[in-house]
Design a binder for these strands. Structure first.
Lengths: 282, 282
DNA sequence: CTGGTTATTCTCGACTTGAGAATTTCTACT
DNA sequence: AGTAGAAATTCTCAAGTCGAGAATAACCAG
């Protein structure tokens, strides 16, 4: 019930239990961010889903990769969402400097088109070997971001193809329970692409249907039928808004110019775009 | 990144920021539970969605209704999920006594068929007037539970029809930001009924298609076409499993006996059962 | 002007849906 | 026993959606 502490607790009512002194064993509250973007693979040139990771500079898990994150600044009355944006900005180096810390997403110019949402909270005792830590995880989507890194100060920060972190392909794995958090974030992202217009958050302000399809293919990790995809996205009311313009040129190797669209007002997709395959999980 | 505290922080790296002393302004961590069940309305006899509320016995918001909840017992190494189950058990009086606190849902016998999932975390500064509180909210579904109340100790606990708490119909509203949490919980519940087999968690071990439909109608708050609903649920693979038995009697005023089913293994519904109406929100 | 490339539109058969209605099986009451 | 009304289950049918596989259209390089 969110009641708190010793004050006004002389009642012998049930609430006495809640005012138990054990409640005051300190618990640290942090935020971790699963930041996703779509970029081209250096080699194949294909578009793939990438996640932002940093390299830990201290024990425990020193040298291990981890999700960016850090303490919620309680003393500064920082909101959870604000903390997530701040950590992301600091870690990516994007607008880490100068930016006022007023309106959440407004702080960092380069992070302006960012979509941010809470993913879940992880607080199992022992997840951090040093003390009890409850971490609120956030999921962030952004259009192709620059080689983040160099967060002004942070240890190496890099966009890593999520495929590389797949348990089995990744020898050491992420620090703490971050592999689990990442997995939850990916599943959430894949699911939200089905019934929300979130995919447009990965694209620029104007994009082609093919680019949008590539977003879906990168996140879902499977090819989609171009024709049917085209028909489908244009039939969902409010999903795409025609700009009446086309790309300046066709493909590098020839080909028709593609029509440009911008995100329409709809937030929910009706009917939804369902993944061809999916597993029986929950 | 879930890193913590002073120890091993003599590095001048970026992490220094994370080790900022301000991080140690205490933050209290609590759990709040949105517990839902379906019961008959005392008057009309119709089935309606109810939420468990308690009456606050202390300031602030003394006398106001609130969601059950309380501190996470850090000193006892209590997991967040455990804390939610414990609070629910204490508040409902169901198995508040004796029960070991081992396996989460196993503690309280009467709560055994309970479905529990994390809803979200609410930590806006000022949501509790006394101190900084970060509350992890949980959503719980259970089949028709007894008139909970009398949690051994708790101030009056009651199942309240959610319609009664609707902003506008409810003069005072819930304490803290609990109205918001409840709203989020309801939306989540309504959404999950669409694409998961969660509805069966509101029904007994064996139920009829009509009872299942009543669950959907109570949660969604709108009538469904009986015939189409029947066809639909039976066509989703793994949703319902035939028991080859029927109810002992038809309806009180006559009528055919209904076939009994139990929940099948499926957790996700394919294809989904979509709400007839829905708003454009996210 | 030509061949290869990319975008967009069509076709068609298999399903799925919503509405409305028919059937089947019961209970209560003459 | 026989009948009316109730509740569960099954059907019908037209409209909409989907996946596969083309067919068209518009472009680029040479």
């Amino acid at each position: 019930m969110t009641t708190v502490g010793p004050p006004d607790s002389e009642s012998e009512s049930a609430w006495l239990a809640a005012y138990d002194p054990t409640a005051f064993t300190p618990i640290a509250v942090t935020v971790d961010v699963v930041a996703l973007t779509i970029r081209r693979l250096p080699d194949s040139g294909a578009k793939a889903l990438h996640v932002l990771t940093i390299r830990r500079g201290a024990m425990p898990y020193e040298g291990r990769r981890a999700l960016p994150g850090g303490f919620v600044r309680a003393a500064e009355n920082e909101d959870l969402d604000q903390a997530a944006v701040r950590e992301l900005a600091e870690e990516t180096g994007l607008a880490a400097h100068g930016g006022g810390e007023s309106g959440a997403l407004a702080a960092a110019p380069l992070l302006s088109r960012l979509h941010l949402e809470q993913l879940g909270t992880y607080g199992t005792p022992g997840r951090d070997p040093r003390m009890r830590v409850v971490s609120v995880a956030y999921l962030a989507f952004a259009p192709d971001l620059p080689e983040a890194t160099a967060g002004g100060d942070a240890a190496a920060a890099h966009w890593v193809p999520v495929a590389e972190l797949d348990p089995g392909r990744d020898p050491e794995g992420l620090a703490f329970d971050h592999a689990r958090i990442l997995a939850d974030g990916l599943e959430r992202a894949r699911a939200k692409l089905e019934y929300t217009s979130l995919a447009t958050a990965f694209a620029g302000p104007e994009f082609t249907v093919t680019e949008l399809r590539e977003v879906y293919e990168a996140v879902w990790g499977e090819p989609l039928h171009a024709g049917n995809f085209h028909r489908k996205v244009l039939s969902v009311p409010g999903f795409l808004e025609d700009t009446d313009t086309t790309t300046a040129r066709g493909g590098a190797r020839g080909g028709r110019r593609a029509r440009l669209y911008r995100a329409g007002g709809a937030r929910l997709l009706h009917p939804a775009l369902l993944r061809p395959s999916r597993e029986e999980t929950l």
